[in-house]
Amino acid sequence: MTADLRHLLGLALAIVSFVGTIVICALPQWRVTKIFQQSSIIASQMFTEGLWKVCSTFSAQIVECKEYEKTLVPIHQDLEVARAFTVIAIIMGVFGILLGAAGSKFMNFVPDERKRSKMAMASGVVCLIASIFVLIPICWTTTTTTIQDNYNNFLPYGTLKMEPGTSLYIGWITTALLFLGGGLLCSSFICQDGTD
């Protein structure tokens, strides 16, 4: 695979993972808490927590989504840290994509070949750092959700179930794509002769 193709593929993966980072930031599905009645196996009430709001669902219909500041429900510490890390990852993703586009041979922003390849390397490094900023809150929230669910299993009535939400699964995929895109952008810098 030539360095130009690696650069283009890495940039495409960075753009897709940037969109994924925006999606996990916006979705209110980081943690799902289901409340079961003692005589039923179907959840009677469900709460989904996101970075910006919490939603309550009754009988499979969304009743209400409110921001944390407008409710009595406090935001968990892991979600508060995830909020900051995800916003930082989005900002870094913008810079990574702009550096990658400016360092591309297909766009003639920088005429010097060496400067272009250095911009591609910087783009890859920024994408790799952004992937770490997505990975940390995803791991932390997954771990705390699992620990809290295991603690809730020891309750005598056993009616509370906590699960990872959709945003965490999208976050794992986004992290993998960011790592792969950043690696491809960095490897396009290493192959300066245009071939392997």
Rank of each mutant, 00 (worst) to 15 (best):
A14M: 12
F18D: 04
F18E: 05
T21A: 15
I22V: 14
I22F: 06
I24A: 01
I24K: 01
C25L: 07
A26C: 12
A26I: 15
P28C: 05
R31C: 02
K34F: 00
I35S: 00
Q37M: 09
S39R: 12
S40V: 05
I42W: 12
T48D: 05
E49I: 03
K53G: 06
V54P: 00
S56V: 09
Q61M: 03
E64C: 09
Y68Q: 06
E69G: 14
H76V: 09
V81L: 15
A82E: 03
A84V: 15
A84K: 15
A84H: 11
V87Y: 14
I90Q: 02
I91M: 14
G93P: 09
F95M: 10
G96A: 13
G96Q: 08
I97L: 06
F109E: 05
V110R: 08
R116D: 08
S117D: 12
S123E: 02
C127S: 15
I129D: 05
I132Q: 10
F133I: 12
V134N: 08
L135A: 15
I138F: 11
T144S: 12
T146D: 11
I147T: 10
Q148Y: 09
D149W: 06
N150P: 06
Y151R: 15
Y157G: 00
T159N: 05
K161S: 06
M162I: 10
G165I: 04
G165F: 01
Y169H: 07
G171L: 04
W172L: 14
T174E: 08
A176D: 04
L177F: 15
L185E: 13
L185Y: 04
L185C: 11
G194S: 01
T195K: 08
T195G: 05
